[in-house]
């Protein structure tokens, strides 16, 4: 079984996403950290209001790919990017586009819950305040917390520190915080890896519920999770997008040998 990917690998695509359903279109994206190439010519179309999962072994570049969609990688000084990401007719890496604009529209939830050392309320209101939200803040906070299925648990603790919540609650707070800025896309970077099974279950249910309002792209190294929450799955290996397609297809009938090996747990 070979673990190296041939230079000229062509991504295997099952049931490609139709042009009119696309929201984010990653177009021949390559990325380097100094000399190290972390992404090799990745092209992936993400459909609107669906959940797309990125899977693969550690170090395959799935987090890097996710973080390049909202240009979080710009924060690393040694990063160099080639290729394009199309987004509603715009190009995210165009010189005229500010990374701040991109993140305004594409929110993110991180691997470890990272609420600000502020109150629950202030955590949720942080983004809207940043963007000069003019409406009723109390309503928006309530709506976001309800959207993240957290309202019932925290409605009496809005003025307590977000750091006082349990791990699962903290992560849902982070989701509510991301939702409050009303982005189009929410990126989730292994959002349950630091949580216990019950908290994980709640987050997974939540992902199901929010996809009617948001497009979700989720990185996970838990294949069952990808199977449970996502509509489409993309498998990456060593910076290359090996295969992508509808989740049930990828899991029941993978086209590429490497995908099959990974799915069946033979490496990774």
């Amino acid at each position: 079984m070979s673990q190296t990917v041939p230079e000229n690998h062509v991504t295997v695509r099952t049931d490609p996403v139709a042009q009119e359903d696309a929201l984010v279109a990653i177009d021949h994206l390559s990325l380097w950290y100094d000399q190290f190439q972390a992404l090799r010519d990745v092209s992936l179309t993400v459909p609107k209001n669906q959940v797309t999962a990125l899977i693969g072994a550690s170090g395959c570049g799935k987090s890097t790919l996710l973080r390049s969609i909202n240009r979080m990688n710009d924060l690393v000084p040694s990063v160099r990017v080639e290729g394009k990401i199309h987004y509603e007719g715009a190009e995210l890496y165009d010189a005229s586009v500010d990374a701040v604009e991109v993140r305004r529209r594409i929110g993110m939830v991180f691997q470890k819950p990272n609420p600000f050392p502020k109150t629950v309320y202030e955590n949720v209101a942080f983004g809207p305040r940043l963007h000069g939200y003019k409406g009723n803040m109390d309503e928006l906070v309530e709506k976001s917390l309800k959207g993240a299925a957290l309202w019932d648990e925290v409605q009496d603790k809005l003025n307590q520190s977000g750091l006082g919540l349990s791990g699962g609650q903290q992560q849902r707070l982070c989701i509510a915080r991301a939702m409050a800025t009303e982005p189009d896309v929410i990126l989730m970077d292994e959002p349950t890896s630091a949580l216990d099974p019950i908290a994980t279950d709640r987050i997974e249910q939540l992902i199901h519920e929010i996809k009617k309002d948001f497009t979700v792209i989720i990185v996970t190294h838990n294949m069952q999770q990808a199977g449970r929450v996502s509509d489409r799955t993309a498998f990456m290996h060593l910076g290359v997008l090996i295969e992508e397609g509808p989740t049930d297809q990828i899991f029941t009938n993978p086209q590429h040998e490497m995908t099959e090996n990974y799915i069946s747990g033979r490496f990774g």
Binding site: N70, M72, L75, V100, E101, R103, R104, R105, G107, M108, V109, F110, K112, N114, P115, F116, P117, F126, G127, L130, H131, C174, R177, A178, T181, L187
Partner: peptide
């Protein structure tokens, strides 16, 4: 101040 908290703010579109 942990990097994670800074990243959270960047992720919300903070400059």
């Amino acid at each position: 101040v942990p990097r994670a908290i800074r990243e959270a703010a960047y992720g919300l579109g903070a400059s």
